[in-house]
Amino acid sequence: MKIKIGNTVIQNQLVLAPMAGVTDLPFRLLCKEMGAGLVCMEMVSAKAISFHNKNTEDLMEIEKGENPVSLQLFGSEPELMGEVARRIEERPFDILDINMGCPVPKVVNNGEGSALMKNPRLTEELITSVVKAVKKPVTIKIRKGFNDKSVNAVEIARIAEGCGAAAVAVHGRTREQYYSGRADWDIIRQVKEAVKIPVIGNGDVTDGPSAAAMLKETGCDALMIGRAARGNPWIFREINYYLETGNELPGPDIEEVKEMILRHAARLLECKGEYTGMREMRKHVAWYTAGYPHSARLRQRVNEIETMDDLKKLLEGNFEGKQ
């Protein structure tokens, strides 16, 4: 089932969530290959862009094959957000997303990310500024609320729609929860019933059955998958198949996992060099191998790898199929 966000057509209902330190170019390409309809980049600071920060420039690298792709900005100053949005619009992303869900203290303490949900008036000014600055569709990613005493996802979604936002993604947890406990899918349903723009549900979608359940229970237009995709780009292939057929695909076999790890590592090295690439690959290897026999030992040893040869030797000697 295709969905449309502004003038951008997405071929299916699956969206790779923006995740700092995870959804860089190599990982996005793998998820796209496995069936993600829309991939979202790591969040980038509007302030850092305005200061021409080199690391931020690297975060905004986009490759033609990954479109449609969403670039996510975070910040709390409406004028600056609009100015930066205008400056970067010529880049080859399709959708500009405003981060209003990040729970990390250093972001929240600056009044950014999920802290914006505490200030609906500022939120309205910020979204309006960005929407007026660009022609590309603008979306927002929010949470249920900042805490259980201020559950205002519906209010913020209505504000966003009124400001001209093209879609809203809703994570069914408060900022106070971070990623603990169960996601509240009912708040996603409430948002869907309150607005006419597409609503993307986020939280506790881990496989085909949970994906189908969220769609049915909330009526949302699309699904955003975050932590469940770490070390598991196959999740998009498996969910798409389930939504189309009602049947579950078997997971990848051991050889496919090894091949994916090595492809992922090779692309990371190509993008970031061996020193940085192999160090960033360590966490991905831990995610890819979680749940396999001897994976605890492998995760201990993965922190020693510094070259592609080290990685190949590690996989050959310590990684076996699931029992």
Rank of each mutant, 00 (worst) to 15 (best):
I95S: 05
A115E: 02
P137H: 06
P105L: 09
S114F: 00
S150E: 15
S129C: 07
D97I: 00
V130F: 07
K136Y: 12
R87N: 12
V104P: 03
V104L: 06
V104G: 04
D94F: 09
N109R: 14
N147W: 08
N152G: 13
K106T: 12
R87K: 15
E90C: 07
V151L: 15
S114Q: 03
K106M: 14
K135C: 10
S150P: 05
R87T: 08
I88W: 09
P92M: 09
E90R: 13
N147M: 11
P103V: 02
F93G: 06
E89M: 12
I156V: 13
I140N: 01
I88F: 11
V131S: 04
P105V: 04
R158N: 07
D94E: 13
T128S: 15
G113N: 02
P105H: 10
S114M: 02
L116R: 04
K132T: 05
I159E: 02
S150Q: 15
V151W: 12
P103A: 09
M100C: 02
S114G: 06
I142S: 02
G101N: 00
I95H: 07
N119R: 14
A160R: 02
K135G: 14
L116I: 03
C102E: 00
E124T: 07
M117N: 04
A157I: 03
